[in-house]
Design a protein around this nucleic acid. Structure first.
Length: 489
DNA sequence: CGCATTTGACCAGCGC
DNA sequence: GCGCTGGTCAAATGCG
């Protein structure tokens, strides 16, 4: 992708004829350099190349071509005819000169692109950091509000009870990479010390706590929410564009199928983990539960789903319990939202979060066939047609013990992740509290180089693109946990 | 030989 | 306190 842009840019440059104007755009890089110096440098470049390529030509020839080349004409081949008294060999050499100039320009442009890429990375990083702070501020604000509103009437078993638990977890429990016990930093530390003598865990916990006290940002409950994806697959795991390493397997209670534990190995210390388990009732259904946030650039095939699940997790963590969501959806006072939800086919059956669930979990059910429906005009204009492609299904509540908040079957099993992204984004958009999360997701897609082609093809070719570091999700700590990737098999 | 997977042991949280 | 369960570790094993 980036190569394409680079090539296009270079081709455009060549077509523009600007390369014949000496180093016209080298001003950008060396603003303090005088025109004389630039011209001189241009000549030197040519002389050096010539010296290397063809010795017999004298400097006068070279200077002549340099002057002509700098004069502004944009027909390189015309140079041969315009030179008096030159032989056909001279013409060939001058053509070679032009080619060499082009090559030099290409090299310079490659270099420039590299610099720009680096600059873009820095900007993205700053942007992500800022975004994370905004999310943190919003989250803190919302949680403080909820605590004030409900501290007199704590309701066990309600989603609010779960909400109230969160600050406690934030302060006294590590964000637990291992879903409970450990922080991402802890994991990183362990990985870094792999092979060294095992240290007592209590010491590790101490150091972790110390780090958390020093870094309040690390206390974000980034690992408190999970995103589950239910999809039909015969493979042992879904192909989500990331590289995973299995580190454990357990027999879970109430399910004859073992649960496998994977950790992301695309980067050292990446805290993202996933659990894969087949459904007991229907073994063709594979449930993949993601948790954590990638701390490394993602391949293009992984970016879309990462944004989706990040947004979903952000929805859970932004202070919006499912009850709030329910309220938002059903409230007549919710102007645009309610009007939208009257047309939204799967909003009426959103399940509620229960305190029985150890973590707020949002489930994307991809197992049911799609059902055609008509999007409301305002939705189309706001979110685009992709958000309402005819693969959206009605929400269904799962009657399992986890009492998960369910996003309904939004997509068919072979639906492109982009559609998933858009649909989930649309669902999330309905709660005002999700704005920050939504912004994070959208910016992730836009800024992360999300491209539809990649996503759409990757979902079909079923190949892990783990080695390609193309699109950059950037360091995405701004996104709440459960930043994941996914594509169906 | 290096890396990934397997698998039994271990640990922490939770309910009784 | 005890047992159950979920989750992780790490040595053993398999594979290319």
């Amino acid at each position: 992708m980036e190569e394409h842009i680079q090539d296009r840019r270079e081709i455009a440059f060549l077509h523009s004829g600007e390369f014949l104007h000496g180093d016209s755009d080298s001003k950008d890089h060396q603003p303090n350099e005088s025109p004389v110096e630039r011209h001189h440098e241009s000549s030197i470049k040519e002389v050096d190349f010539f010296a290397a390529k063809s010795q017999p030509f004298d400097l006068g020839h070279v200077r002549t071509t340099t002057i002509v080349g700098s004069s502004g004409f944009n027909d390189g081949l015309g140079l041969v005819n315009s030179c008096h008294g030159t032989s056909s060999n001279d013409g060939d050499d001058k053509t070679k000169t032009q080619i060499s100039r082009l090559k030099l320009e290409l090299e310079r442009l490659h270099e420039e692109n590299h610099k720009l890429k680096h600059l873009l990375d820095e900007v993205s990083e700053s942007y992500n950091d800022l975004q994370r702070r905004v999310l943190l501020a919003r989250q803190t604000q919302v949680e403080g509000l909820h605590h004030k509103q409900h501290e007199d009437v704590p309701q066990a078993g309600s989603s609010q009870a779960l909400e109230n638990r969160r600050p406690k977890d934030m302060n006294h429990e590590t964000p637990a990479t291992t879903l409970k016990r450990r922080s991402p930093d802890d994991v990183y530390g362990r990985d870094m010390h792999r092979g060294s003598p095992k240290t007592p865990r209590i010491d590790q916990n101490k150091s972790t706590n110390h780090e958390e006290q020093q870094n309040p940002h690390d206390q974000l409950p980034y690992r408190k929410a999970r995103v589950s994806v239910r999809a039909r697959s015969d493979a042992t795991t879904v192909n989500d564009g990331c590289q995973w390493r299995k580190y454990g397997q357990k027999m879970a209670k109430g399910n004859p199928c073992p649960r496998a534990y994977y950790r992301c190995t695309m980067a050292v210390g990446c805290p993202v983990r996933k659990q894969v388990q087949r459904c007991a009732e229907d073994t063709t259904i594979l449930t993949t539960t993601y948790e954590g946030n990638h701390n490394h650039p993602l391949p293009p095939s992984a970016t879309a789903m990462a944004a989706t699940t990040s947004a979903a997790a952000a929805m859970l963590l932004s202070g919006s319990s499912s009850s709030n969501l329910h309220q938002t959806l059903s409230s007549p006072s919710a102007t645009s939202s309610s009007s939208f939800y009257h047309n939204f086919p799967y909003t009426s059956t959103i399940a509620t979060l229960s305190a029985s669930a150890p973590f707020p979990t949002i489930t994307l059910d991809l197992t049911n066939p799609p059902r055609p429906l008509q999007p409301p005009p305002q939705f189309l204009s706001q979110y685009g047609p992709a958000a309402f492609l005819p693969n959206a299904n009605q929400i269904r509540s799962m009657n399992n013990n986890n009492q998960q908040l369910l996003i309904p079957n939004l997509f068919g099993p072979q639906a492109p992740p982009r559609e998933m992204v858009d649909s989930v984004r649309a669902a999330i958009a309905m709660d005002p509290n999700f704005t920050a999360a939504l912004a994070a997701a959208i910016s992730n897609i836009i800024g992360g180089g999300n491209n539809d082609n990649n996503n759409n093809t990757d979902i079909n070719d079923n190949k892990v693109d783990a080695k390609s570091g193309g699109s950059s999700n950037g360091d995405s700590p701004q996104l709440p946990q459960s930043c994941t990737t996914f594509s169906t098999n």
